[in-house]
Design a protein around this nucleic acid. Structure first.
Length: 430
RNA sequence: GGAGGGGUGGCAGAGAGGUCGAAUGCACUGGUCUUGAAAACCAGAGUGCGGGAAACUGUACCGUGGGUUCGAAUCCCACCCCCUCCGCCA
């Protein structure tokens, strides 16, 4: 959600932004409805003023005939007022629907492009792993080491089902525990949020209305989260925070559910694309200025890079092009890990900032706890800025981990930093 | 799931159809007094939307959405949330 006043004054910016994001959105139509909204609102308010004045007279008057006359006048006015209120209500509905579709404006530094294929590499770290033997892909490696069971996974869950078993499960625990220590040391407050949430929260983050096909919902019309970003960003909804308590830095751990509707043919094998997984997520609420957003965006992305570097997995970072940005995102970086079996990088992390797009929908504000009285003006509450980034997802991380650290005998070396969490140096058959 | 009680400003808590954006207390801000502070006293202070360059002004907001009425915090209906008790349960 953007500020309607801003939209009114900057419609060319909105148009250019939508074009860059390859999103179809008609600003002129919104502004037409905004004109209608304001006209109708003015009419309604004029009638209410009249009504309020008459009401006061009726209450104060002792003259019965005056009263009777006024009441009769107001009965007539009331009919007209109701009609106009109906009009206003309809206009507001249309207006709100359109407001929810306004895309946020991408940053200048976002490259043009249509899809993830047009994202630009801005950094590459580590040597792409080379092998002196025929490397296997993660499905084969993990099957051989009895870390995963896809057959029974699909028997129980269906398409895209899996069980992590034995060292597959243990390795997941090791990663979670390591990540919890690693990111916890960077000043984040750990959080285990609800994974079933009211739909307002998906509107808040911007996952609704546009991504309705990709989310699961319940018979109570609640939704299963696809990311902890949803309940954590919504954590402070409707609140006015103190400026001094910003930034809020949260590290959420949650299951994530994605229907993957529309990607039935893609990544049908293995652990890359599954319907349920776990993810540790960084979420930040900060003061409302662009430099703050940029600073924290760089930082949370760098946090994940550092984490991957500590594991020793080759990766590159891309800046996402306009067409690969979500409706609310201003700018996004993806970190992609090298997957030898596919001979390409695969996304593991996504860091983006939204300015006040989400906080307007969630109504999260802040103000100075200690106002400066010199000019007599208390600082107005402002909407916070929000950002989020993956810390680490499992089991997707296992794909590149086992493929890059596989050895000739079929075993997998455990990255040094994980060894104390995992308890062994090597994953092997026995 | 069943029975009962309740949601009012930052907090506590009145109000039970018109004089209510809402008493009172606490907290907060400014001032008077004071060497300084406390106390006391005086004054001020919410948010959204519309109009206005601004001062300011109109309107809405007493959990949410409807309804009754000339007029609703107050009456009616539905929903949400919280509390107590019973049942079920990791």
């Amino acid at each position: 959600m953007l500020d309607i006043k801003f939209i009114r004054e900057n419609k060319e910016l909105i148009k250019a932004g939508a074009k860059k994001k390859h999103i179809t959105f008609n600003v002129d139509k919104l502004l037409e409805w905004d004109d209608r909204r304001r006209a109708s609102l003015a009419t309604v308010e004029r009638m209410r003023t009249e009504q309020n004045i008459a009401t006061e007279k009726i209450g104060n008057s002792n003259n019965e005939s005056d009263k009777a006359r006024l009441i009769e006048e107001m009965q007539t006015l009331k009919v007209k007022l109701k009609e106009e209120e109906e009009t206003l209500k309809k206009v507001m509905q249309r207006w709100k629907t359109l407001m929810l579709e306004v895309p946020n404006i991408p940053d200048m530094s976002v490259p043009d492009g249509e899809s993830d294929e047009d994202n630009k590499e801005i950094k590459a770290w580590g040597e792409k792993t080379s092998f002196e033997f025929d490397p296997k892909d993660h499905v084969e490696i993990m099957n051989n080491l009895e870390m995963v069971d896809f057959e029974r996974g699909t028997k129980i869950h269906g398409f895209r089902g899996y069980y992590l078993i034995g060292d597959g499960a243990r390795l997941s625990w090791a990663i979670w525990n390591y990540a919890n220590d690693f990111f916890g040391a960077k000043g984040f407050l750990p959080m285990i949020p609800p994974a079933i949430v009211r739909k307002e929260n998906l509107y808040g983050t911007g996952h609704l209305p546009n991504e309705a096909d990709d989310v699961y919902n319940t018979q109570d019309e609640d939704y299963l989260i696809g990311t902890a970003e949803i309940p954590i960003t919504g954590y402070h909804s409707g609140e006015v925070l103190k400026k001094e308590e910003l930034p809020k830095k949260y590290l959420g751990f949650s299951p994530c559910f994605r229907r993957e509707a529309g990607s039935h043919g893609r990544d049908t094998r293995g652990l890359i694309r599954v319907n349920e997984f776990f993810k540790i997520e960084q979420v930040i609420l900060c003061e409302a200025n662009h430099e703050e957003s940029v600073k924290w965006h760089e930082e949370i992305n760098r946090n994940t890079e550092e984490f991957i570097e500590s594991l020793g997995i080759p990766y590159h970072t891309v800046i996402n092009c306009g067409g690969d940005l979500g409706q609310g995102q201003v700018k996004k970086y993806d970190i992609e890990l090298w997957v030898p079996g596919e001979n390409k990088y695969r996304e593991i992390s996504s860091a983006s900032y939204f300015h006040d797009f989400q906080s307007r929908r969630f109504n999260i504000k802040y103000k100075e706890g200690d106002p400066n009285p010199e000019d007599g003006q208390r600082e107005k509450p402002r909407y916070v800025h929000t950002l989020n980034s993956t810390a680490i997802p499992t089991p997707r991380i296992l794909v590149s981990l086992v493929e890059n650290f596989q050895q000739a005998d079929g075993s997998v070396k455990v990255p040094e930093v994980l060894q104390k969490y995992f308890g062994k140096e090597v994953i092997s058959k026995n």
